[in-house]
């Protein structure tokens, strides 16, 4: 029986410190490689971050960040007690939810189907064409969508031809989520599939060769090789999207909604925008922005730990 090696606490700490500094020394070149990005984040992201205090101020440009009076949580209170708050929250989450449910998987499925194509030229053609709508401005895609669903638009014309009643899609709140979601997917699925296509390109061909020798069919190859290989990318993008649950941009919605569908279409950002038209208030929008960010960030951390626990893939 060997005598156990007993170390004093001090010696243990010392050893740990030594190990740590060894580790750091070993990675010194890595730190050098990281330096440009770290500098960028320090100077252009962290240095201006003192500006976030305006969420707690009654900020006026004339006074500046340092002299504007503090009002504590007043803007937060004002937002949370707003008559519309719960509705805005519900709509924001629902629209994001639709995006997660339908918008998120679409580019993945599209990329996988594209990956199954054997005609290389056709594949590249489809790829190029589907990515193009991303470059058409939101203004035009939104207006085209509205035209399609208007009373004398294509959809209602077809409905009339087959003898179904016309539907006023854009004056009935219940159609807003689907119309909006379809419009977003229409514009962006091709663009969003690029990252998956690139990841698919990194799958080792030898794996497929081995699978074929083992007699695996295409479905099995997809299930056991392709999907596991792009899973980390899918998971990371999913985590990032969950961490954006409360950020629904105002531009596209503003272009598509009208007062008769506010009930489903009015989201946090559009409301803050309209309020800002009454009285341009940096502090209020900063406070709402901070509220969104805090919730988003908590969601991100939650999603990340879940993923770490279940799948081994995580942001950090």
């Amino acid at each position: 029986m060997k005598a156990p090696i007993v170390k004093t606490a001090y010696e243990g700490k010392l050893a740990a410190k030594k190990r740590m500094s060894d580790e750091i020394w070993q990675h010194r070149h890595i730190y050098v490689i990281l330096l440009p990005a770290v500098l960028f984040y320090l100077l252009f992201c962290y240095l201006p971050m003192f500006g976030t205090v305006i969420a707690f101020q009654k900020f006026s440009v004339a006074k500046g960040v340092f002299k504007s009076p503090f009002v504590g949580l007043e803007h937060f209170r004002s937002f949370l007690s707003d008559y519309n708050f719960w509705r805005l929250l519900r709509n924001t989450i629902s629209i994001s939810g639709y995006g997660l449910l339908f918008g998120f998987p679409t580019p993945i499925i599209f990329a996988l189907l594209l990956n199954e194509l054997k005609a290389k030229r056709f594949k590249r053609l489809v790829q190029t064409v589907t990515y193009m709508p991303h470059f058409i401005s939101v203004v035009i895609v939104a207006s085209l969508t509205l035209t399609f669903v208007s009373n004398d638009g294509v959809i209602n014309t077809i409905r009339a031809m087959i003898g179904v009643d016309k539907v006023s899609f854009m004056s009935n709140p219940k159609y807003f989520y689907p119309v909006y979601t379809v419009s977003v997917i229409w514009q962006n699925f091709g663009w969003n599939s690029i990252i998956y296509l690139a990841t698919l390109a990194s799958v080792d061909v030898e794996l497929y060769e081995a699978a074929v020798i083992d007699g695996a069919n295409r479905w099995k190859q997809l299930l056991h090789i392709t999907l596991p290989c792009i899973a980390p990318t899918i998971i990371i993008l999913l985590i990032l999207q969950i961490g954006n649950l409360l950020s629904v941009g105002f531009e596209r919605i503003m272009l598509m909604y009208n007062p008769s569908v506010y009930e489903r279409a009015d989201v946090i950002s559009t409301y803050v925008y309209r309020r800002g038209l009454l009285n341009g208030d940096y502090s209020y929008s900063a406070a709402v922005g901070m509220f969104n960010s805090i919730i988003n960030f908590i969601l991100l951390i939650g999603a990340n730990s879940m993923s770490k626990y279940f799948s081994d893939t995580s942001l950090w």
Binding site: Y83, N84, N172, P259, S260, Y271, R274, L278
Partner: peptide, 25 residues
């Protein structure tokens, strides 16, 4: 500040209701 806080809510609500009435909903 009071006007902004109240009118942001009122205008949203009123424009909604006016259009509902016009549309027959």
């Amino acid at each position: 500040d009071t006007v902004t806080q109240i009118m942001a809510q009122v205008e949203t609500f009123v424009s909604e209701e006016i259009n509902k009435i016009v549309l027959g909903r």
